[in-house]
Amino acid sequence: MPRVRIAYRQEGPARYVSHLDVMRAFERAARRAGLPLAYSQGFNPRPKMTFAAPLAVGMSGCREYVDLELETEPDPAGVFELLRQNLPNGLVPVQVQAVATGPSLMSLVHRSRYIAVGDVPVGLDTGALQVGLKRFLGRGEIVVEQKRAKGVRRKNIRPGIYSLSARLDGDKLCFSMELKAGSAGNVRPDEVLAVLGKDLSLVPESFAVWRTALLSRAGRLLWDVKGDSIC
């Protein structure tokens, strides 16, 4: 089946929408637009849609991805325009491209970049910030605890923190991070903020977070992964 890959932003009110609900919103938009979605077989046919990586509730996405399988050969420019007209507020198409059949979108994702912006803790200056950051990154092991159905799981997130920097911008504190993403060893920005929160006495919940990029193992955009030596 022909496939289109859609890059979109998820912002404004839509950042409070759960992944499952975003899926439904895409399906409905495609139906309103009259896109010939391909459906699965069986008692409960579902549209063939694959998302690159679920976005956490509350987070904005600057460049999220979904693959739609269609019944007919798509015209990417036409699909872009139809989605632009039919997606609800806060889900905004950025780019549409036909893609050849290949590995699933999810399996391509290995890294994510984030920006987190929040209030500067009282008394924190650039010097103290950089010292704190250096100490944080200098730790060989950073263990967070995850609550699971079967008790608590401990996980070392340090290997999954590929880069982390911070700067002060007026009364705002901005972090940029690149973290491991995907099915194994995924690190969430709120986990990083929670640990940093203790080090720098900041309030993690007061940070607005954007996921700015989803990248392949070699750090490429998901459009253009042919160059990746096979993942």
């Binding site: 009110p13 839509a14 929408v17 759960s18 609900d21 409905r28 509730v57 509350g58 507020n89 919940e205």
Partner: peptide, 14 residues
């Protein structure tokens, strides 16, 4: 950021 199903409270639907 702290409540369940925050989409209940923000509007912006189609």
């Amino acid at each position: 950021a702290r409540v369940e199903k925050p989409a209940r409270y923000v509007g912006g639907e189609l």
